[in-house]
């Protein structure tokens, strides 16, 4: 899967990313008069976000058309669910768990430390588009609290003092390596 938050998805709909999405949608055999066709909408949005990294309007319109529903309906669903984002995230996505187990073990201090070191607040992306920070609620690895995930890799028992060291390798890595990590 290519992941290109830097340039916005190509308007031409035969762009490889749209092709990949269409392949998935075709496998669902949607029929415009099936009143139940929308039961896969959230699955499709997940897929689209995986492919594009986020859900820009052009992708939303595309999906609305495929499902024969209005754009408002699609954007209404997207805005309801925290998992979906309509703005690009960083290439390296730092997620700090603020679930209860992590919180009582000092996760908020870990989050503050990431914010200090990267110079952005939770929910923001660094100016070069490289890093973003989010908080999430429990990845189910509470035994390792506090937990941080970076591009799906789980780091356990993180202390505020560990943050620089964790980020170090991402600071020095070239973009090429970064991509590899994001696929790990």
């Amino acid at each position: 899967m290519t992941y290109t938050p830097n340039h916005s998805p190509c308007v031409e709909q035969n762009h490889p990313q749209f092709k990949e999405l269409d392949q998935y949608i075709e496998s669902l055999h949607l029929s415009p008069d099936d009143p139940r066709r929308k039961d896969t909408l959230i699955m499709t949005l997940h897929r689209a976000q995986e492919i594009f990294g986020y859900l820009p309007e052009i992708v939303q319109l595309h999906i609305a058309k495929k499902y024969s529903i209005s754009h408002a309906e699609v954007s209404g669903v997207i805005s309801f669910y925290n998992f979906f984002t309509t703005t690009p995230k960083g290439k390296i996505q730092v997620n700090v768990c603020l679930g209860t187990a992590c919180y009582v073990n000092g996760a908020n201090k870990v989050l503050q430390e990431f914010e200090q070191v990267l110079g952005i607040k939770s929910g923001q992306v660094t100016a070069d588009g490289k890093f973003s920070i989010e908080s999430l609620r429990c990845v189910g690895a509470c035994g390792l609290a506090p937990v941080v995930t970076i591009n799906h890799k789980v780091y356990g028992k993180v202390k505020p003092g560990d943050v620089r060291e964790i980020l170090e390798k991402f600071f020095i890595e070239e973009d090429k390596d970064v991509k590899e990590v994001s696929h790990a």
């Binding site: 929308k38 039961d39 959230i42 997940h46 669910y81 925290n82 998992f83 979906f84």
Partner: peptide, 18 residues
């Protein structure tokens, strides 16, 4: 898709219906 309220059964059913 990351909404706690969807654990509630009627909300869950709505979510299943897209």
């Amino acid at each position: 898709a990351g909404a706690f309220v969807c654990g509630e059964e009627t909300a869950l059913i709505h979510s299943l219906q897209g």
